[in-house]
Structures are given as C-alpha cells and as structure tokens.
Design a protein around this nucleic acid. Structure first.
Length: 314
RNA sequence: GCCUCGGUAGCUCAGUUGGUAGAGCAAGGGACUGAAAAUCCCUGUGUCGGUGGUUCAAGCCCACUCUGAGGCA
C-alpha cells in the first residue's frame, strides 16, 4: 500500500526557499507548511524573513503567525500541529509542501521521532541551572546516575540538553531510551508518508554574499522599527523568540551595547554561522536531493522540484 | 633630509637570554529527540616585508632595501 507523498524543501537561510516553494506550490495547487521556529511568532516579520502577505495570498501557508512572542513553544507542539496540518491537506486532496530551515522541526516530520510527553518544568530547570553555576559538572554527574547512556551521549557543558534529560528522568523515573526513538531509527518505526526532500544549496561565498545583502535589505525594510515596537509592547528581551537573529543584536543596540554598525555586522556574522550549522544538520540525511542554486536558474529549480513531486505523487 | 616606533595567521596583536612561532577574534569541521535562529564540541591557519651577512642555529643580532605611522627640520 502506497503512502502519500510529502514534498519537503529545506536549505540554509537566504538560499531562496520561500520563492521556490511558492512557485512550486502554485504549479501544483499545493499548500505550504512552514518549518521555521521564528516565523511562528506574530509580530516578528521582517527579521524572520516571513513571506509577505502578498506572497502568501495565492498559496495557503500554515504554521506561520501561530503564537505570540512570549508564548512557550516546542518541537513537540510543532510536530503535532504539522502532522494535523498534513493530514488535513491529504483529506482535501491537496499536496502538502513542508518548507523551512529549522532542522529539528523538519526532522520531527521526516523521521519517526517520539518526543517525551514531559513538558518543561521551569522551577526544576532554574534550580538545576543554579546547581551547575555553583558546582560545574554537577548536572553531568547527576545524569550519569539517572541515565548512563544519555550521559555518555551528552557533553558535560551542554547545559540545555543535560537539563532536559534530567527533567525527563526525574519526572518519569525512566530513561531517554525507554521513552523516545532515535535518529538512527533502530526501532524501525515508520512515518505515515513518503517524503521527497529537496535541499537548496549554494557555494559558501555566494550564500554569504546573499546573507549580507539580505540583512541590509531587512534594515531598509524597517527591522529596527519592528524591534522597537516589540519592546514597546513590553516583551521581555530575554524571551527565547527575541534571541532570534536580528532581534537579539538590535536589542543590544537599543540598549547601547552596540553601535548600529556593530549590530548590523553581528547580525550578518551570526546569520552566516547559522547557515553553516543548518548545512551541517541537513548534510547527514542521505535522502535529500541537493540543488545548487548557483548552477541553475530559479525557474529550472522549480521545474525539477515540481516534476519530482508530481511524479512521486502519482 | 634627519629621528623614533612599527611591518609575524584573514584581522588585532604576543613572542623570554638567538634553538624556524602563539593568543583572542574571524574561519573551517562536527554534534543535535519538548528552548533548536537555541545549546554544545573539535581544528588549523604562517616564504615572521625583501635581500644579504654574523652564527652550528636568526622572528630576535648587523647592513642594505621596500613600506606604514608619528616627530623634528
């Protein structure tokens, strides 16, 4: 029995996913499901490079503007919403295209990942962080007692993951292994669709050039006003959402920690590094068919992807 | 024209009494299961401005030379 096809378009920031995805969707009367951890936030438009209302008017886009900036959100929630969204498009006879650059969000759909059902426990988290501050290495030692295998896998400095692992162990009394699957998919679980994945890429130098240009464009489009407005609305600069590229650095500028030039340069630099990390993330998924956007035109890329999606979908 | 101080990694610089170099940042590589634009790990990068000389041995000493900054005239 054939599983329905899921179109997936991934790639580093600024490579041109938005345009390509929309063009492919137009040709196929498809709908787009965003896999972007910043575009989910209402009010973060310019800095997150959200497709504009105009770009979205012909093609329904899902999972953009779904929460407020101070909402707590997680991959697990994303996975649930996206799976429901995908199921809904199938039921309406529509082809779904997942498009985005947040590796973990994408993987939550194209790997059979089961996230532990334990929500965040802020009190536990802050006390664990406190403990690590006073006794460095304490978290790793603690996890070793609770879940030897998880402790081996995590570096002793990787605070966030150590905290999360301890959180799960403490609240369930069991280990990570017994709760979830893993990337290697040893459990041989299956996802309910057949992903056809295209990765957009480009020579590093060209990509970096595009990033620099795009950051300048964001500044002329009024990113600073957007950031100012967010702060005026009373949002705490410490919020996870506001650690996003462009927001974090402009907040530092507004707080007088940076000159405007320094802030803009920092945005460019950190965006380049982010793109590198995205590439590292996606590199290991052998199913991805890579398209070098430096070698072919946008139109050709759209042709290739549309054809592949269409043929697979038959 | 003279004097002084510089020229060492992509950048800013360190380099002991001569034993062919090292920090930070940048960069590259990697990890990633409910914060992921987050978090974390690893790694070099060299005609020491050039040419001669002294020396077993020169980034370091000497001469010449190119070049930058400042000062004096």
């Amino acid at each position: 029995m054939n599983k329905p096809v899921l179109g997936v378009i991934i790639g580093p920031t600024a490579v041109g996913k938005t345009t390509i995805s929309i063009e492919v969707a137009k040709r196929m009367d498809a709908e787009i499901i965003s896999a972007d951890s910043i575009q989910i936030y209402r009010g973060m438009d310019i800095g997150s490079a959200k497709p504009t209302i105009y770009e979205r008017k012909d093609i329904p886009h899902h999972l953009i503007d779904i929460v407020d900036i101070d909402a707590s959100f997680s991959v697990a929630e994303y996975q649930g919403l996206a799976q429901a969204c995908i199921a809904d498009t199938y039921s309406r006879g529509i082809f779904p295209i997942v498009s985005g650059g947040t590796g973990l969000y994408v993987n939550s759909l194209i790997f059979p990942l089961d996230f532990a059902t334990i929500p965040a426990d802020e009190a536990l988290r802050s006390s664990l962080n406190e403990l690590e501050n006073t006794t460095p290495g304490a978290l790793h030692d603690m996890l070793r007692m609770l879940d030897e295998k998880a402790a081996v896998r995590l570096h002793r400095n990787d605070r966030k993951r150590l905290v999360r692992a301890i959180e799960i162990c403490k609240l369930t009394g069991s280990t990570m292994d017994s709760i979830g699957g893993d990337f290697a998919n040893k459990a041989k679980k299956e996802i309910p669709y057949e992903p056809v994945i295209f990765g957009l890429t480009m020579q590093r130098e060209a990509l970096y050039e595009r990033i620099n240009t795009r950051v300048d464009a964001m500044m002329s489009a009024g990113l600073l006003c957007e950031v100012r407005r967010i702060l005026e609305n009373g949002y705490d600069p410490q919020l996870t959402a506001l650690q996003g590229l462009g927001y974090k650095q402009l907040i530092l500028y507004l707080h007088g920690k940076y000159t405007i030039e320094e802030a803009v340069n920092a945005i460019k630099m950190e965006t380049r590094r982010f793109a590198k990390r995205q590439l590292t993330w996606f590199k290991r998924d052998q199913r991805i068919q890579w398209i070098d956007m430096g070698l072919i035109s946008q139109r050709e890329a759209v042709d290739i992807i549309t054809d592949a999606f269409t043929i697979a979908g038959r």
